[in-house]
Design a protein around this nucleic acid. Structure first.
Lengths: 126, 126
DNA sequence: CTTGACCTTGACGTTGACGTCAACGATTAG
DNA sequence: CTAATCGTTGACGTCAACGTCAAGGTCAAG
């Protein structure tokens, strides 16, 4: 299939697909007229990339998963490099959550100081 | 005092101060030679801006606080506009925390699937 | 033949808060 | 007088993941 169809089926823009190729994540064969040619395995790659992106991974983070898939594995997380990225991202997310919780406490304290009673109206647990 | 001293005392770069001025957050008087001239109240403004920035506010978010201070109030959060920003930011932070918790669960699930037992090694509560 | 839908590469725009020159003027110490 | 240190106004660079033209090539249908 060509880039337009892959884009439609994967739910991304053609620009994104060309960008992925430029970043070395999605190499494309070319047909005689210069058009990029893709197959089902490429769709799988894009799907993997997208699902990683939606959980906050960067394209660089996605690289090991893509390479794992291209190496013939059934899943992108079947390789130790991918698992390592998972662990690193988990730590990053935990750090971000801690930072946000700290900020939330700061802002809530300031808010209650400036406007007592206001804080009661919101909450993470809500 | 001039821009260099204010920068040192506030712990920011002169570039940042000029940027704040450009954004209308820190208007500066000019001495006869064209140099920016600041006083203690300006230091207070910068301090306010910085403390807001460190809890994740944008310069635009900081605007009401700065205007509140310039209006003669003892604190930047003494005005209803500031309080409103606090509430909005609190909601934003809560939303971000929810998003991150969702991502954390996703990644943790993927990790445990790819490498059972790995998840046990980390945690937000740690 | 011509339209229209598809494809190509190249290159600039977006966002926030500055960093980092460049090229120049002002002030002060020696 | 001169160097050192400060100040000034542009204006481009940074970072990620594309969006959005521009200018053109390709191909099937009518």
């Amino acid at each position: 299939m060509r880039i337009g169809e892959l884009a439609r089926r994967a739910g991304v823009s053609t620009r994104a697909l060309r960008y992925y190729e430029q970043q070395g994540l999605l190499p494309a064969r070319r047909s005689s007229n210069g058009y990029r040619e893709y197959d089902e395995s490429d769709l799988k790659l894009v799907t993997e990339i997208r699902s990683l992106i939606t959980v906050g991974f960067t394209l660089d983070d996605a690289r090991p998963f893509v390479e794992c898939l291209r190496a013939g594995n059934h899943a992108g997380n079947a390789c130790p490099e991918s698992v390592e990225v998972y662990r690193r991202k988990l730590a990053e997310i935990d750090e971000q959550i801690r930072t946000l919780l700290g900020r939330r406490a700061e802002v809530a304290a300031q808010l209650s100081e400036a406007c007592p009673g206001c804080v009661l109206k919101t909450g993470v647990t809500t």
